[in-house]
Design a protein around this nucleic acid. Structure first.
Lengths: 161, 161
DNA sequence: ATCATATCGAAAACGATTTTCAATATTTTT
DNA sequence: AAAAATATTGAAAATCGTTTTCGATATGAT
């Protein structure tokens, strides 16, 4: 079981885990051990920006943490609904999640269909276009996804066709 | 080889089925009955622009045609690889196909996440942006997909939240 | 403590798609 | 026109990422 006195209560600095706890509690949800571990992975940018459920499972397993896919998927859904994560589908049939830092501008993706490398780019006009097109049709826009598929320079070089 | 006197040779106007046959034959493939039926659906625009495998199955079934999903999926893949159809993923985990009329400019989609209504729009700057971003990163662009998700005017009205 | 509720993991279910495989159809070769 | 080679078919099983079910467990509130 977890310790009674939260490890963060001894700090002065506002503690991110506590913020997440609050967010979850507001919805009657709990910041469990597993959910905390998942959040830690997203906050550690060295582990990648775009993580799939599989990636998370691998990360935690390699640290010796035992977690089930059901728990991972459930946590991801919750975190998306709370606005903590953003869900994107870079490869068909596979969802990726990224930390939804509110200060970070919305961005779009370039995907290499060979090696799977993902690069981001920002482009304000995309959002402008989206808004304009949505308005033209009396749509209320909720989100948009713009993805460019191609071959990265390395994969272009290694391809002989 | 193919029939000696092609049924279209009596026409002056070039016959589309024969063009498809040619296209397929060039790859050692055959324009079978089932493939022809599928093509007919796409050419009849009153049946919708964006069709899923399920849609095609329903259309053919309602006409009394018997066809299996395996055949539909196989045909769709072939037609995409030949450039006859274009594949898009408007809803997660579900692919739609549209006739890839070469004279029609590339277009993008607005999807109502409530009722599923799909509207198209053209916007040349999307392609321009794609090319620019791809070049910036030494990507060779193969395709891009831009989709705006939101609520259509009707679904906005019927929603009380 | 006790009760209500949230969460967990394992395993089964899902849904769209893909593959396998034996039977059938079409084309090409004789 | 038969035989041989090849492509296509449908039914059923397999995939794959994801979701749900369910009984066991953990947490939070009274």
């Amino acid at each position: 079981m977890y310790s009674h006195q939260s490890p963060s209560s001894s700090h002065d600095q506002p503690d991110q885990p506590d913020q997440f706890k609050l967010l979850l509690n507001q919805e009657g949800l709990r910041l469990t051990n597993q959910r905390q571990k998942i959040l830690e992975i997203f906050m550690d940018r060295t582990k990648g920006y775009h993580l799939s459920a599989e990636d998370i499972y691998q990360h935690l397993s390699s640290q010796g943490e035992r977690i089930s896919f059901s728990t991972i998927y459930r946590a991801l859904h919750i975190l998306v609904s709370l606005g903590v994560l953003r869900e994107i589908e870079l490869i068909e049939h596979k969802k990726y999640y990224e930390f939804n830092h509110p200060n970070i501008a919305p961005h779009h993706h370039l995907v290499c269909i060979q090696c799977g490398e993902v690069t981001e780019f920002e482009e304000d006009s995309i959002i402008d276009i989206s808004h304009r097109e949505a308005q033209n049709r009396n749509f209320s826009m909720l989100s948009c996804q713009f993805t460019i598929y191609g071959l990265c320079s390395q994969c272009q070089a290694s391809d002989i066709w």
